[in-house]
């Protein structure tokens, strides 16, 4: 083995890497929030009796689930350029991840909605609640309990997927790592540091979600 590891440049740039880690968290959290809203709408559209709405939802969901996430990023990055829409690298990542998250979450939400018995809604209505109240106070909380763990998983996936930003030139953790590594050629060292940071981020998310679950579902 005639390779000398140089960790010094990595340590010197550690603040930059950690800052980039925050960007990773930011973009994946934002994409989760947008994805959740869109996913809810898609799930409702897929369950609705309106045919065009159903078709729109099905197309979105199946495209998001059956093509590589990298392809989706390329599509929003380069494909839309064909129509003269040029998104910034940040927007490419955000739109691509939200599109993907929405597709996966929509299926989870649909499963959740179908798992809550129709009678819950009817009972709420017969107690005098409006349709809106019955949905938001009776149905959604039960759906939320069912989709909580899949959502946590999706959040982890979003963090892992956000590393694809490197391929479209956004400098979150992976992109920043590649940028720094290509300046010093200490590729292995830098990417090992990035791997550790990703691992820690994922563990923190899982830990927080477990804490939150304990707090939220303690009366179950």
């Amino acid at each position: 083995m005639d390779y000398n590891f140089h960790w010094r440049p990595v340590f010197n740039k550690l603040p930059d890497l950690l800052e980039a880690g925050l960007l990773t968290l930011e973009v994946s959290l934002l994409s989760m929030v947008i994805g959740t809203v869109l996913g809810l709408l898609l799930a409702l559209a897929k369950l609705s009796p309106l045919k065009p709405a159903r078709w729109f939802a099905i197309t979105w969901i199946e495209l998001a689930r059956n093509t590589p996430a990298l392809f989706q990023l390329f599509f929003f990055g380069f494909g839309l350029g064909a129509f003269g829409w040029h998104l910034s690298p940040f927007l490419i990542v955000l739109v691509g991840l939200s599109f993907n998250n929405a597709g996966y979450l929509a299926e989870n939400f649909r499963g959740g909605f179908q798992a809550v018995p129709e009678n819950q809604y009817r009972a709420a209505r017969s107690l005098g609640m409006t349709a809106f109240q019955a949905t938001t106070r009776i149905v959604i909380p039960q759906v939320f309990k069912i989709v909580y763990h899949p959502m946590t998983n999706q959040m982890v996936w979003a963090v892992l997927m956000s590393s694809l930003a490197m391929m479209v030139g956004y400098r979150e953790l992976a992109g920043e790592t590649q940028f720094l590594a290509s300046k010093t050629f200490r590729i292995f060292e830098y990417f090992l540091a990035a791997a550790v940071i990703y691992y820690v981020i994922v563990k923190i998310i899982l830990g927080l979600s477990r804490l939150l679950a304990w707090r939220l579902f303690r009366y179950e």
Partner: peptide, 10 residues
């Protein structure tokens, strides 16, 4: 827990 992209490069 580590992105596949990072694993590949690593």
């Amino acid at each position: 827990s580590v992105p596949l992209l990072i694993q590949l490069i690593l």
